[in-house]
């Protein structure tokens, strides 16, 4: 977990401060702020917490407590692609348990881990609303249905090729 202990310079303090400022006066502003930061940075950088706390007149510990309560918020950088496998019952009934095992084997990681090259991270999710056409996965903001081993391999291949082309 090298990344999380490094001092982060991957995010733009001004941008984060602006974001916090634009949201802090909403009633119940904390979740909207956390969502906004995570969508900009891909995670909630440790050093943003004191900024949020200050803006909302709360302690850093309180902000931490909220972040840790929700599965969605993360405090270490995600992979280039975040993959979520649906573990809901309807997907289980369509083969998601086997898919889950396959995905972990293929990426050689477990839930809440990241591949060594930083390409993928993996988490579980409980229902994406595609329950009649599972197994379902989510990659970033895309939900993909009827995923079997072959389709998963194709998805992974497309994602990695795309990145290589970009570099």
């Amino acid at each position: 977990m090298k990344n999380s202990s490094q001092h982060d310079s991957t995010w733009d303090v001004d941008l984060i401060e602006k974001t916090i400022k634009s949201l802090k006066d909403k009633p119940g502003a904390l979740l909207p702020i956390l969502h906004a930061i995570q969508s900009v940075c891909g995670y909630i950088p440790k050093d943003t917490i004191s900024l949020i706390a200050k803006a909302l007149n709360q302690t850093s510990a309180e902000i931490h407590g909220v972040i840790s309560f929700y599965h969605y918020f993360r405090t270490s950088p995600s992979g280039n692609h975040s993959i979520q496998v649906c573990r809901g019952e309807a997907c289980q009934a369509r083969g998601s348990r086997a898919l889950e095992t396959y995905v972990k084997g293929k990426l050689k990681i477990n839930y809440h881990e990241k591949t060594p090259d930083g390409e993928f991270d993996l988490t579980a999710v409980y229902c994406l609303g595609n329950c009649a056409r599972g197994p379902s996965i989510r990659v970033g903001d895309d939900i993909i249905g009827s995923v079997d081993k072959n389709k998963f391999n194709q998805i992974i291949n497309t994602l990695t090729t795309f990145v290589v082309e970009l570099n």
Binding site: Y70, H71, Y72
Partner: peptide
């Protein structure tokens, strides 16, 4: 609209 954060 307010978004939840993956908590059943």
């Amino acid at each position: 609209v307010r978004l939840g954060a993956e908590a059943y």
